[in-house]
């Protein structure tokens, strides 16, 4: 179990992997991508009929294909997201009132329940694909710059950036502490000792994080930090950005029209 976790924590190493690439979406201005991602996600939530949802899913798949991200990685991510959706499929069709379509033993699946599940699955996957192709193709550094340019409160941007910056450090710290515990013969189980050990491990992690935060602040204060987040890179809209903007405007307009006309 403990070893299993160490491997799992190693995921951080790979989580910015999608940001590497040279596709059109990787090159685009992160400010534009953030805005488009927010607007498209909201619009998909708003959609209320099957046809526009299918169109949205198709366009999300096309965008995902454009990014050229490794296929295995993508599939694993999307599969993971669908675990919660699978839970819904296991419950909702059988508990929604309506016309019975399929019945297995005492359970009856209704058409309205199935339709609801289908909608949720489509929406969830579409939004996740939009997010991967628009947000995960930027590095966190670029994203925090974009957020600051978009006038997101500076405290939030800084918290976002610093948290990301020290995530790896703390994760390494955590791996080290866990390894130490394992070397001393720690075997996780359902007992008080396990929980106390985990608590001490996490407590150590919090203490080290706190101390490091203090040191980082002192180091920054020595270099004149006064709460301002200085921007190093400035963005300029390019031809690709205008292309992306017009494409997504077209997409959202057609989705709205399809939704309106199929009512």
């Amino acid at each position: 179990m403990g070893l299993h976790f160490i491997e799992e924590a190693g995921r951080f190493m790979t989580c910015e992997r999608m940001a590497k690439g040279d596709s059109l979406l990787h090159e685009a201005d992160p400010r534009v991508k953030v805005i488009i991602a927010i607007l498209l996600s909201m619009e998909v939530v708003f959609l209320n009929s099957l046809l526009p949802l299918l169109v949205a899913l198709a366009s999300a798949v096309v965008m995902l294909a454009f990014t050229g991200i490794e296929r295995g990685l993508l599939l694993r991510r999307i599969l993971l997201i669908n675990i919660f959706v699978a839970l819904l499929w296991a419950v909702i069709p059988w508990s929604t009132p309506g016309r019975t379509v399929i019945s297995i033993g005492p359970l009856n699946a209704t058409s309205s329940g199935l339709l609801k599940c289908l909608f949720i699955t489509l929406k969830c996957n579409t939004i996740v694909m939009f997010n991967i192709s628009l947000l995960s193709t930027s590095s966190i550094f670029a994203l925090s710059h974009a957020l600051d340019h978009l006038k997101v409160p500076s405290v939030l941007v800084q918290l976002f950036f610093f948290s990301w910056r020290y995530l790896h450090v703390l994760e390494e710290e955590y791996t080290r502490i866990t390894r130490a515990a394992l070397l001393r013969g720690f075997k996780p189980g359902t007992n008080i000792l396990t929980y106390r050990t985990y608590a001490n491990v996490l407590g150590t992690l919090f203490v080290r994080g706190y101390d490091r935060g203090q040191r980082v602040y002192w180091a920054m204060a020595c270099r004149g930090f006064d709460g301002t987040f200085w921007l190093l890179s400035h963005f300029k809209l390019k031809a690709t950005d205008f292309f992306l903007i017009s494409w997504s405007a077209l997409l959202s307009a057609s989705l709205l029209f399809l939704d309106w006309s199929s009512k």
């Binding site: 918290l159 910056r165 706190y210 203090q214």
Partner: peptide, 8 residues
């Protein structure tokens, strides 16, 4: 900010 970020 650094402290809260580290705790986050």
């Amino acid at each position: 900010i650094p402290k809260i970020a580290l705790l986050t």
